Amino acid sequence: MIKETVNLIIVGRTKRRRRYLFVTTLLAIIAVALCCAILMLGNTMYPVQDVIRVLLGEEVQGASFAVGTIRFPRMVAGVFAGFAFGVAGTVFQTMLRNPLANPNVIGITAGSSVAAVFCIIVLQASNTVVSIASVVGGLATVFIIFLLSKGHSFSIGRLILIGIGIQAMLNAVISYLLMIGQQHDIPTAMRWLSGSLNGAKMETLYPLIVIVLICTPIIILLGKRLDILELGEQAATSLGVDTNKTRLILIISSVLIIALATATTGPIAFVAFLSGPIAKRLVGVGFSTIIPAGLVGIILVLASDLIGQFAFVTRYPVGVITGILGAPYLIYLLIRMNRKGDL
Rank of each mutant, 00 (worst) to 15 (best):
A293N: 12
C215L: 09
G266P: 04
V67S: 05
L56M: 14
P73I: 02
T24M: 00
G89D: 04
D227N: 06
L208Y: 00
G286T: 15
A31P: 11
A311W: 02
S288V: 02
L333N: 12
T69L: 14
T204D: 15
A81Y: 09
L197G: 09
T128M: 11
A77W: 01
F83D: 05
T14S: 12
L139T: 02
L177H: 08
V241T: 14
I160F: 04
F287L: 06
A236M: 09
N43A: 04
I106A: 14
G57E: 07
I174Y: 13
L282R: 05
G308Y: 00
I70Y: 09
L295Y: 08
S253Y: 02
F273M: 06
N43P: 03
V114F: 12
T90R: 05
F72C: 15
L325Y: 04
V51C: 10
A133P: 13
L139P: 07
I108Y: 12
R53G: 10
F22D: 15
V210T: 13
K201N: 14
L27R: 11
V114Q: 01
Q124F: 04
Q234G: 05
L239D: 08
I174W: 11
Y206G: 11
I252V: 08
I144C: 06
S254L: 03
V135R: 10
S275H: 03
C119Q: 15
I290G: 06
L205F: 00
L39R: 14
M179E: 13
I9S: 06
C119A: 15
A84H: 06
M75P: 09
Q167Y: 06
G12Y: 01
N7C: 11
G319N: 09
L208T: 05
V173F: 10
V318P: 02
D227H: 03
A81N: 13
E203P: 13
R13Q: 10
T25P: 07
A84T: 13
S196G: 02
T262H: 11
F72M: 15
I321F: 04
P277K: 07
N198A: 08
G68C: 11
S134N: 04
R17M: 10
L26A: 15
I38W: 00
L302V: 05
R336P: 11
M1H: 07
I257D: 07
I180Q: 01
S238R: 09
I331F: 07
V51T: 02
Q167C: 11
I106N: 15
R315P: 10
G82L: 01
I220Y: 03
I219W: 08
P217A: 08
S134G: 15
G232Q: 07
L177Y: 12
F287H: 14
P267M: 04
G68Q: 02
G199D: 10
T94Q: 08
T262N: 07
I278H: 06
L139G: 09
I214W: 00
N98R: 12
G111S: 11
F118I: 10
H152R: 13
L41T: 12
I180M: 04
S134R: 05
N198Q: 05
T109M: 14
I186E: 14
V91Q: 11
A269K: 12
M1V: 00
S275G: 10
S194W: 01
N338K: 08
L139R: 11
L197H: 03
